[in-house]
Design a protein around this nucleic acid. Structure first.
Lengths: 339, 339
DNA sequence: TTGTAGGCGTTATCAT
DNA sequence: ATGATAACGCCTACAA
């Protein structure tokens, strides 16, 4: 019951009239101690408010029970970060780990931080996000045998375990949803073909359209994730003959910008139907609310932590990957088809 | 240079032909060791890639060099969290601390987590955010002598140090800005009078209006931070005789909802001018972009960490408060006054 | 079932 | 200026 713990295992042992070892056993190997003794020790623990010292335990067990995560300077709408961090903290806590946050502005700084955190034993491994096409951080960690799991995967299979969400599946769901609401001319709006996540989503859109027997000619829009550029592309798309009546988008930013650019009819309803991606908080708050593909970040975090902890226990295993399905959150009211 | 540190101070000492203590001194009290010896030791440190073990150091120094932060389940648009967390991680890193994130769903869970983290010596203190009118967490920490600093302050001065941003000042800036752009009928849109941050902002609006000699009668709008409710209030305000031509808002959510509710003229320009609060990422991405009051989170984080570290060094001091000024980010183009 | 001994890696104290 | 000794609090062997 004393404040600001300074209660040690020895004090508990003294209070219970046993040796330190017995107290330790009560906590770590309860089966090796007589029920009566255990009870007595437990009472002493409660009364003294004993909590095992983390540093001592870490020192002894050569572990930190901490998982490191680099938090990048906020840029644009980092929509997923809050959700992901919370999910991560929760998953980690569930298996007795904590999340240790640190910042780094450049990749070199980041790698230096990794080296120090591992070298000092401050963390046991890392979670990486915002994975690039061929992310050097993954190889860097792998070369040094540093446990790490990434949210997102490099285009070329890398040396590290990963968890990812199938963007192609997400866009298939967007297309299916729009088709079910009567659309045939469905355009895609997303990043230009190239390095990042966008490709998978665009390919998913194309495949789903083909599956439905729908044409994609002239319906593939690409721009930077900037409202003005998105607007220009969206307007160009709807001005062509046989224009799209709906947009499936690579992110909510594209969706919001497209909807604004194309405008609304006299009743204030959007002239095209739009589906976003990432289900950012603002999606639900728009009028009318925006349907959007939601990534299952709780599951992502669960698997990330699971893979990481498994590496802690059995280092040197082969990299594993976990692919998860996103889920479209439909928010249109039934009768509201703009066609 | 070996991988996965296991290099200890003893190995460095052996390599340099000195005692462990001398190595320690080279790192922690360089003035107590001869330059030549120091140089030799430093070379050994570099060559072996020695990094002092954190757990051992923590054990010895009865410190963790970690600051705890509870991350709440994401709700609504938790706009500031990414920015704040990054700023916090950066500030903490700057003074040799790390940020330790954990989750808790209820206040009881949160307090239990605090007790355990402090009791086990996993963290040295806490940063608290989302402070309530009379936040029991503050008293709880104070009673136990647990170092903590809050971002935001309770309405009644509490027992803990805090850093806050002057919301009244922010709204004064909003009003000044709108007045400078020719508005005289400026309404406020924010939370109902009562428990939270809103009050200060509403009072700031009222005071600024008075200072400009402008009436506030019938211009004070209140609702929950929900688009539909905001829309209703905004519409009601603009339908009255001598309606407002501008809204100064308590958050970007109010601003976005108000702008959408009141609509745009035939040229697509908003019918009222709106200023938000918090400068959420989407503010800059809207069309036209939204002016918004921005909280200086880097400074907030700096002071939070500073106050906390000061408590670590000299426990038991009186609580201190730091009040910071926000800054309006003006985004209207000069000629675009909707009046 | 319980107790004793030793060491995890570091730093503070004290002696040389 | 440097080194020996002890201790931080815990846990794993081993001994009783």
């Amino acid at each position: 019951m004393r404040d600001r713990s300074g209660v040690t295992i020895s004090e508990v042992a003294a209070a219970a009239g046993v040796s330190r070892q017995t107290v330790s056993n009560v906590l770590n190997a309860p089966d090796r101690v007589a029920p009566a003794t255990a009870e007595r020790v437990r009472r002493a623990i409660d009364e003294l408010g004993y909590l095992p010292n983390r540093a001592a335990r870490n020192l002894r067990e050569r572990t930190s029970r901490c998982i490191g995560f680099k938090i990048a300077p906020p840029s644009g709408l980092n929509n997923l970060l809050d959700r992901f961090l919370h999910a991560l903290a929760e998953s980690a806590g569930g298996v007795g780990y904590h999340l240790l946050l640190f910042s780094a502005s450049t990749v070199d700084e980041e790698l230096a931080a990794y080296a120090e955190l591992i070298g000092t034993g401050t963390v046991d491994g890392f979670v990486l996000a915002d994975i690039d096409t061929a992310d050097e951080r993954l190889d860097w960690c792998a070369e040094r045998g540093i446990p790490c799991v990434s949210f997102g995967r490099p285009t070329v299979p890398g040396p590290c375990s990963w968890v990812d969400v199938d963007g192609g599946d997400g866009l298939a769901q967007s297309v299916d949803h729009l088709v079910a609401r009567g659309h045939h001319r469905i355009a895609y709006l997303g990043w230009p073909e190239g390095p990042r996540v966008g490709d998978e989503r665009r390919a998913g859109w194309r495949a789903a359209m083909r599956r439905h027997g729908l044409a994609t000619e002239g319906l593939s829009g690409a721009s930077a994730e900037d409202p003005a550029e998105v607007a220009a592309v969206a307007r160009r798309l709807v001005r062509q003959p046989d224009p799209p009546t709906a947009f499936a988008c690579g992110s909510d930013t594209f969706a919001v910008a497209a909807r604004q650019a194309v405008g609304a009819d006299s009743a204030g309803r959007p002239r095209v139907e739009v589906v976003g991606y990432d289900d950012s908080p603002s999606a639900a708050l728009m009028t009318p609310p925006l349907s959007s593909v939601r990534q299952p970040l709780d599951q992502v975090a669960y698997h990330v932590v699971d893979l990481l902890v498994r590496q802690f226990r059995a280092p040197g295993g082969p990299p594993e990957g976990v692919m998860l399905r996103p889920e479209l959150v439909a928010r249109e009211r039934p009768g509201q088809n703009p066609r």
